[in-house]
Amino acid sequence: MNEVVSFFSTTIRLAAPTLLAALGIVFSERAGIVNIGTEGMMLVGALAGVIGSYVTGSAWLGMLIAVFVTVLFSAIFAYFTVVVKADQTVIGTGMNLLASGLTITVNRALFGASTSPPEIDSFGIVAIPGLSSIPIIGPIFFNHHIIVYLTFILVPIAQFVMFRTNIGLKVRSVGENPKACDTVGIRVGLTRFLSILYSGVLAGMAGSFISMGMVSFFTEGMIAGGGFIALAAVVFGNYTPRGVMLSSLVFGASNSLMYRLQALATNIPSQFLLMIPYVITIISLCIVSRKSNKPLGSGKPYIKE
């Protein structure tokens, strides 16, 4: 029984950073931006959070700083894709490489290349009084980091914003048919720019949650494809916040399964276990790609005549 509880609890915990980042991507994707650069944004957020926490002594302030820095970083992506109208995929790839280079450089400059990581404040587990003591349910759902709760609370909010509000309608429309939006007075570029910044906010939170919640240090390239998996979660979740939650849970479960199997010390080499999340991601993409809600204007810059 403990095994099962632990499996589900870990699933939820591991799903959280993917979900958090994906809830940002789902808005920028709906706005017509293929945000390959999420991986880099999360990486920047992870380092900025650690530095922020190290300097201020508070994980929360660290996350605030991470969000600020990541938004600045995502503004570069937004500038190139929306203002300069360059190829989104190529710019996204450049952003990932930039994030990789910058975080390594800054991390080495601040903390040295080989010394042990600095002591920082990180997020602890907050058990919800009362609810967490319910057997089985409690430890699975109500014994997590605050960020995990916030992430899941954000899902219905995002769903509501996307489908019930004026802003949501604008975001969904600029991704489908930017020209039509232009003719009714919507500022396509601004909407897309802000969608990217918003995805930057959540990517920054997700990245810093990884470096200050899942662990409490930064290592080079520590996101290890998490940004791409979040991107895949958006495709697998068919571009809705609710769907993204389900797909993130699937990916979380595949990670959780990997840890379970590692702990069980089976004969399967650990490397094959480590591949599980990546393989699951590929399989999930193959399942949904033919019938997705992908916005019609996805990936194409809008060039006003």
Partner: peptide
């Protein structure tokens, strides 16, 4: 790793 930064910037500015 500054070289990686420069490479990344070249991608951005070429694209």
């Amino acid at each position: 790793s500054v070289a990686v930064v420069i490479q990344a910037l070249i991608i951005l500015f070429i694209a």
